[in-house]
Amino acid sequence: MLQHQCENYTIDRSDKVEDKEIKKEEANVADEATKDFEPTEGAQEAGSEDTKKKVKKSKQEIKIDELEAQLEKLKADTKKDREAYLLAKADLENVRKRVEENAIIDRKYAAMGLVSDLIVPVDMLVKASSMETEDPQMKNFLIGFQMIANQISTILKNDGLTEIEALKGKPFDHNIHQAISKEHVDGVEPGQILEVLQTGYKYKDRLIKPAMVKVSE
């Protein structure tokens, strides 16, 4: 009986030892399988380098985008500055042209004030020289007045002074004539010049003094 129990114990122990050996072997196999899937040191370094390259590339792309954005902004600013420059240049040219035109006009009409001031005394000389007299001495004076008036008139005409046309029977023009009086005349249409009371003048193309006239109504 005791011998039989000992044999059974020996068998059970052998089975347990065998089970342990099997489990140990399975563990070794699992370890080997796991080693096959563990990355090597070289693989880890390669993966790290790839990651670094991707990060570096991403940073470079961001930098390129920023630089391109700055370039576009500079282009826009340059275009805006050029447009402002061209506008300022055009304004300057316009101002220069106006200044030159005004200078030409000023030179053209520089003597207009003096000419205008001389018209009245010249008219007085002309009227005085037209007086009729029987006195020989007075006639000589009047001839002298006429000569002086003619000389001054010639100088003024050479500088651009002209008499305004205001002939009897011509239509009244409010741009160059001034109606001093009106009179009804049979057979004459309204608005016709009946008489020139005072000569009018233009200096070049500017009106200095309108002709004073009597007009029909």
Rank of each mutant, 00 (worst) to 15 (best):
I180V: 15
K127S: 11
E189A: 14
E195R: 06
D123K: 06
Y203G: 01
H174D: 09
Q198T: 02
Y203D: 03
L161Q: 04
D173I: 03
Q178E: 12
P171A: 05
K139L: 14
P190I: 04
S129Y: 00
S129T: 03
G144T: 11
L156K: 06
Y203M: 06
N150E: 14
D159S: 11
E189I: 12
K157C: 04
N140Q: 14
S130R: 05
V120L: 03
Q146E: 11
V126W: 00
K139C: 11
S129W: 02
E165Y: 04
H177E: 05
I164V: 14
F141L: 13
D135G: 00
I176H: 08
I164T: 07
I119E: 01
A179N: 01
G200T: 01
G187I: 11
L142I: 00
H177R: 08
H177S: 04
V196F: 04
E183L: 08
I148S: 11
L194N: 06
G169V: 12
G144M: 10
E189Q: 14
F145C: 12
D186S: 13
G160S: 07
I152K: 07
D186E: 13
M124D: 11
T199V: 01
L167N: 13
I152N: 08
Q151I: 06
V185T: 12
G200H: 06
E132I: 02
S129K: 09
E183Y: 07
V122F: 05
V120I: 07
Q146R: 14
Q137T: 14
I155L: 10
K170N: 08
G169L: 11
V122M: 06
A179W: 04
K170G: 00
F141K: 10
G144C: 10
G169F: 15
D186N: 13
D186G: 12
E195D: 09
E134Q: 14
V188K: 10
M131L: 14
H177Q: 08
L118M: 12
A149T: 02
M131E: 13
L161Y: 02
A179R: 02
A149K: 01
N175H: 02
E189D: 14
V120A: 06
I152V: 15
K139D: 10
F172P: 03
N175F: 01
D159T: 08
I143R: 15
H184V: 15
G144V: 07
A128E: 09
K157T: 09
K139R: 15
I180D: 11
K127V: 13
H184K: 15
I193N: 00
A166E: 03
L194K: 06
L125G: 03
S129R: 03
I164G: 03
H177T: 01
T199F: 03
Q178G: 02
S130I: 04
V188Y: 06
G200M: 00
G200L: 01
K170A: 00
E132S: 11
H177W: 06
E132F: 01
D123N: 03
